[in-house]
Nucleic acid binder design. Structure first.
Lengths: 223, 223
DNA sequence: TGTACATCAGTGAACGCGCGTTCACTGATGTAC
DNA sequence: TGTACATCAGTGAACGCGCGTTCACTGATGTAC
């Protein structure tokens, strides 16, 4: 879904031949494991993938343009040929995270039973948050500034909520919006509590987060 | 609970007299509105208050030890006589925020009707989050590291949740924990969505957050 | 097929900044006598 | 009531660091002829 493989021959062979022809200048050869092409080919996508990796490893507040560049294997100035700023890069990361969530919600929306559909949407939401907590924080938190200035981000977020709203309206046409907000708040709150570890030292032990999500939704949505 | 008020006369008058006796040296007089005592008297409390002010103004990720010191009117090294690090200061701020939340929840727990009590707890939780969004993020988010190492913080958090759990058990002894987690997740999720502005550009317009919180809780808690 | 050249996408050095923290210091305070 | 002195709680300079961003540059690419 991410990197459209254009039918361009990889830059790698070209560089390898260069290295070969310059084999006499052995002093210039850097003992690098993976010979790096000068022109990357698809650095924009690589940077976005690297950002996901950095988010997973360092968390949302730990992310740095320099870290992302390093993870992508380029100098820390290179990203500026593809993104105007760190914030612009984060906006695209968040937009794609919303798209991923929307895709997942859309997929489970195929469930014919409207009640079960709501339960699956709830579970999918929590599962997405738990799978990528840093992305989840980036999507909603204040780390990415001026969200309103990124229409694509807004559109992706609206699409995700649209899935929730559609399922709620299908189940209870009269109270669609309220049911949707109830379900979304519940899933969002449980997601945050889980990824922040707020439930860990509580008298109420949580053995199985997925089962808990379902149990709470059953009650809260009147199913 | 924290600073035992020792029967020391405030440093301020002493300094004022000093200023008076040095009135001849007018050149030394700095035209400061509030003549600052060299010894502050209660800098620890002032720093905590200043941290709240900085949080309100700059948000949770914007907070800085230097800003807090400046807001308290002291040099940026002064806080180290009262807190081992910025993180220690934030831990106390978060602990007090949890205590404030617990106080508010305890107060509304006096409501005799158990259903109405749950509704009021829900509303109070959301109101606290909306009143101090940056504190709320600090309490739960990853900005304050190693939360587990601060027993007082943990205790204050447990007490707040204890109020929710007690009210849930009073209303439905059989399903107390599940009801409590449902209510907490709902309130927590709605709080986060509201303070993050996630509902602002949605097809579902939110006119009155308090009414919305009540409406969702009525449905989710089966009241 | 070759060649000249404009353009693209990298590099690495540098800038300025603000941060948390440390340190030697000094003024203020409280106490023993 | 004084005085000497230990201790406390400030100050301001400094350190080292990592950050986002800029800049002049250079290697690689694609295209016109």
């Amino acid at each position: 879904m991410e990197v459209k493989k254009t039918p361009i021959k990889k830059a790698k062979p070209a560089v390898q031949s260069t290295v070969k022809s310059a084999a006499k200048a052995t002093a210039k050869r850097v003992p690098k494991i993976a010979p790096k092409p000068y022109h990357h080919g698809n650095l924009r996508e690589s940077l976005l993938a690297a950002a996901d990796a950095v988010l997973a490893e360092r968390g949302a507040q730990g992310i740095t343009l320099r870290d992302v560049a390093k993870a992508a294997g380029v100098s820390h100035a290179a990203p500026y040929h593809h993104f105007a700023s760190l914030n612009e890069l984060l906006a695209v990361v968040a937009e794609r995270a919303f798209t991923t969530l929307g895709d997942a919600l859309e997929q489970v929306s195929a469930e014919p039973d409207t009640g079960e559909r709501l339960l699956k949407i709830n579970g999918t939401y929590v599962a997405c948050a738990r799978a990528q907590p840093a992305q989840f924080r980036l999507m909603f938190g204040p780390l990415l500034t001026h969200k309103a200035e990124h229409p694509a981000l807004k559109a992706a977020a609206e699409r995700a909520f649209g899935c929730v709203l559609a399922a709620a309206c299908a189940h209870d046409p009269k109270n669609g919006p309220v049911l949707a907000l109830t379900g979304w708040s519940l899933a969002h709150g449980l997601s945050n509590l889980l990824i922040d570890g707020a439930l860990e030292d509580l008298p109420v032990k949580v053995e199985n987060p997925e089962a808990l999500a379902r149990q709470l939704a059953l009650r809260a949505l009147g199913l």
